[in-house]
Amino acid sequence: MTLISKQVPVIRSDAEALNVARELAAYFKRESVVRDRERRLPHDELELFSHTGLWGITVPKAYGGAGVSNVTLAQVVALIAAADASLGQIPQNHFYALEVLRVNGSETQKSRLYAEVLAGQRFGNALAELGTKTAHERTTHLVAAETGYRINGRKFYATGALYAHRIPTSVVDDQGVHLLAFVRRDNEGLNVIDDWSGFGQRTTGSGSVVFDNVFVAREDVIPFQSAFERPTPVGPLAQILHAAIDTGIARAAFEDSLHFVRTKTRPWIDATTDIASEDPLTLKSFGHLSVRLHAAEALLERAGEYLDTAQANPTAKTVAEASIAVAEVRALSTEISLAAGSTLFELAGSQATLAEHGLDRHWRNARVHTLHDPVRWKYHAVGNYYLNGENPPLRGTI
């Protein structure tokens, strides 16, 4: 694939976005095993990724972007995640920040920050914190100073920050209001630490970001909390991206299982066949996996359609419907990604565990990424919605 040009192309349509993603995914897949095994951070790959124009596909048409559907966005993320699960996850909070900007930013902020993205800039994240009472509590503090603000605090699980030009950071002001600060990566006092040691998603760079009296301009801070005090699609947008990542991981594990059984696996002695792909119990297992994988892919598309409706007309009803549709695919994509990564070894056999194949990365990636938020609460939300008519909470789980 042709490497980086100085001019970042602007993708103009959903079809173009999918074509570019398919070509890029094929390129990323070639070295995915090596990147995982050696924890080779994908700096060059991300330069290529953002210089294809794919990081700008959600910029609305009114601001010069393609404004692709959420169906397309989810498919693009799933395609990249199937090739390399870490590369699929790194832009997740970039797209999330762009949605917060769309919902809560001023016209001036949108014009300026969207233009940066269309020019190839990458946004990371500094949202979550360790050591707080709950996963949603934030202590990183923002205070007024000079012509803007100063930020002090420490973040973790900062996926994408290591590779970002700006780091959207959740902060709390003196009144306890949550804001989102689009902090420049090179600002003095900002330290991104590569201390992510998860056994999966090894190259996401999801480690720490430390803010030591870091300056942020007033015009780079937008409201955050208010996105969850009224019906907006911000929450389900974040969640559909997670579902797309898991669905991509499941697809990769399934495809690698098929290839290995066809080319390397020996049938079990009781199968009464010399060809592993004709083993009747193997066929049953592949059938079971394929049905659930195709169901997850269909639910992902359906959730994208509901989310498109909620974006076009955000009401309590449309946002709740989108949130439930996304919760349904989150539940199934969690389960099939784990099942595909584990069943791979049952079907492929002992050879599949050899390190040179790198097939363990699928289960490791799925296990780490699906811990983002518990699937049991997805089922709770879905059941409560259908049985009791209770809308899910307006919460920004990212």
Results as ranks from 00 to 15, higher is better:
residue 274 D to S: 03
residue 274 D to H: 07
residue 275 I to K: 14
residue 275 I to C: 13
residue 277 S to C: 04
residue 277 S to D: 13
residue 277 S to Y: 15
residue 278 E to Q: 15
residue 278 E to P: 08
residue 278 E to C: 12
residue 278 E to V: 08
residue 279 D to L: 02
residue 279 D to V: 03
residue 279 D to K: 10
residue 280 P to C: 03
residue 280 P to T: 11
residue 282 T to M: 13
residue 282 T to E: 02
residue 283 L to W: 10
residue 283 L to R: 08
residue 284 K to G: 08
residue 284 K to D: 13
residue 284 K to Q: 11
residue 284 K to L: 15
residue 284 K to Y: 06
residue 285 S to L: 15
residue 285 S to M: 01
residue 286 F to G: 00
residue 287 G to H: 08
residue 287 G to Y: 06
residue 287 G to E: 02
residue 288 H to T: 11
residue 288 H to D: 12
residue 290 S to F: 07
residue 290 S to N: 01
residue 291 V to S: 02
residue 291 V to Q: 11
residue 291 V to L: 13
residue 292 R to H: 14
residue 292 R to E: 13
residue 292 R to I: 11
residue 292 R to Q: 01
residue 292 R to L: 01
residue 292 R to M: 11
residue 293 L to T: 15
residue 294 H to P: 13
residue 294 H to C: 12
residue 294 H to F: 07
residue 294 H to A: 09
residue 295 A to E: 02
residue 295 A to H: 08
residue 295 A to K: 14
residue 295 A to C: 00
residue 296 A to L: 12
residue 296 A to S: 14
residue 296 A to I: 13
residue 297 E to Y: 10
residue 297 E to P: 04
residue 297 E to N: 04
residue 298 A to P: 05
residue 298 A to F: 09
residue 299 L to P: 08
residue 300 L to I: 11
residue 300 L to K: 13
residue 300 L to Q: 04
residue 300 L to H: 01
residue 301 E to Q: 14
residue 301 E to D: 04
residue 301 E to I: 15
residue 302 R to H: 14
residue 303 A to K: 09
residue 303 A to P: 10
residue 304 G to A: 00
residue 304 G to E: 05
residue 305 E to G: 13
residue 305 E to H: 02
residue 305 E to A: 15
residue 306 Y to N: 05
residue 306 Y to A: 14
residue 306 Y to L: 15
residue 306 Y to W: 13
residue 307 L to C: 02
residue 307 L to P: 12
residue 307 L to E: 01
residue 308 D to W: 07
residue 308 D to I: 11
residue 308 D to S: 14
residue 309 T to Q: 11
residue 309 T to C: 06
residue 309 T to K: 09
residue 309 T to E: 13
residue 310 A to T: 03
residue 310 A to N: 09
residue 310 A to I: 09
residue 310 A to V: 04
residue 311 Q to W: 15
residue 311 Q to P: 00
residue 313 N to W: 00
residue 313 N to L: 01
residue 313 N to R: 07
residue 313 N to Y: 00
residue 314 P to G: 02
residue 314 P to N: 12
residue 314 P to L: 01
residue 315 T to E: 03
residue 315 T to A: 12
residue 315 T to H: 03
residue 315 T to I: 01
residue 315 T to N: 05
residue 316 A to T: 03
residue 317 K to Q: 15
residue 317 K to L: 15
residue 317 K to G: 03
residue 318 T to H: 09
residue 319 V to R: 03
residue 319 V to L: 07
residue 319 V to M: 02
residue 320 A to H: 11
residue 320 A to I: 05
residue 320 A to T: 10
residue 321 E to K: 10
residue 321 E to F: 03
residue 321 E to H: 05
residue 321 E to T: 04
residue 322 A to L: 05
residue 322 A to N: 07
residue 322 A to H: 00
residue 323 S to P: 01
residue 323 S to Q: 00
residue 325 A to P: 00
residue 325 A to K: 06
residue 325 A to L: 06
residue 325 A to G: 08
residue 326 V to D: 02
residue 327 A to Q: 12
residue 328 E to A: 10
residue 328 E to H: 05
residue 328 E to S: 12
residue 329 V to E: 04
residue 330 R to K: 15
residue 330 R to A: 07
residue 330 R to G: 08
residue 330 R to S: 05
residue 330 R to T: 02
residue 333 S to M: 07
residue 333 S to N: 07
residue 334 T to L: 06
residue 334 T to S: 05
